[in-house]
Amino acid sequence: MDIFAQQVINGLVLGSVYALVALGYTMVYGILGLINFAHGEVVMIGAMIALAVVSALLAVSPDMSPFTLILIASAAAILVCVFLAFLMERLAYRPLRNAPRLAPLITAIGISILLQNIAMIIWGRKYKMVPQIFPTETHEIFGASITSVQLFIVAISGVLMVGLLLVVHFTKLGRAMRATSESQRVAGLMGINVNKIISVTFMIGAALGAVAGILVAGNYSVAHYSMGFMLGLKAFTAAVLGGIGNLGGAVLGGLLLGLIESIGAGYIGNLTGGFLGSNYQDVFAFVVLIVVLVFRPTGIMGERVSERA
């Protein structure tokens, strides 16, 4: 088996999920200049809800088709996350729209802690096993193996990302979102209900996040109340790497970060003479974050230094 090819495949799978989550960060940043640190927790809630629904359904009718199962569970998770994002924007961020920049940032961290604790109270502190609802088939490509779940992750992420880019660039809603992110004041003069567009932006990000949460839980077969924290930080790093505020950048940053991590983890043992093992994989994301912030704070695709950051 080709180790390098294998790491590339793993990196792309990981990266697709980062990209999905990064889109949520970057969309909200693009429109409000706000880093919604609670977004990782929305992803976690998505995974938890889906898992809860799958478990409940399996308890009632054990031989329900996997397809129906995942469809119902995803619908429930998306619905809950979208509603959560709506509440979060409405109740926590909107009142702080004109407050100093630190206030919404601290609020975001507060919401993040709050959501983790709520999840812990509801679902407990233990790691929750995700039932294997899909048969694990392994396919061979370029001398590397990929499971059907991983294929599914890449496919779903790809479809969602392309869909989002199409909506943002070619629909009236997307045009309104781009206009609002340039100037809320002038967007209002066009008859756009700016608050509604901001709300919708949060909700779209949350829907993508919910799907990402389900994909991650499916990939690792485990879910936990704290799973959104590290995932959120990595996705945020991906967004910064690509150029925060830029949708294409989030996709690119996500995929790149996934590749860097995965390839790095594959070789970190050799590089450090066995001193660091692949469990140091997380180091890469933060090295990337620091390097980008120091040398190119606008990221790969960010064209201007944002005065709002």
Partner: peptide, 12 residues
């Protein structure tokens, strides 16, 4: 809107 095209500006 500096980042929207002329036509998109008009459509706004």
């Amino acid at each position: 809107f500096g980042r929207l095209t002329v036509e998109e500006n008009l459509l706004m």
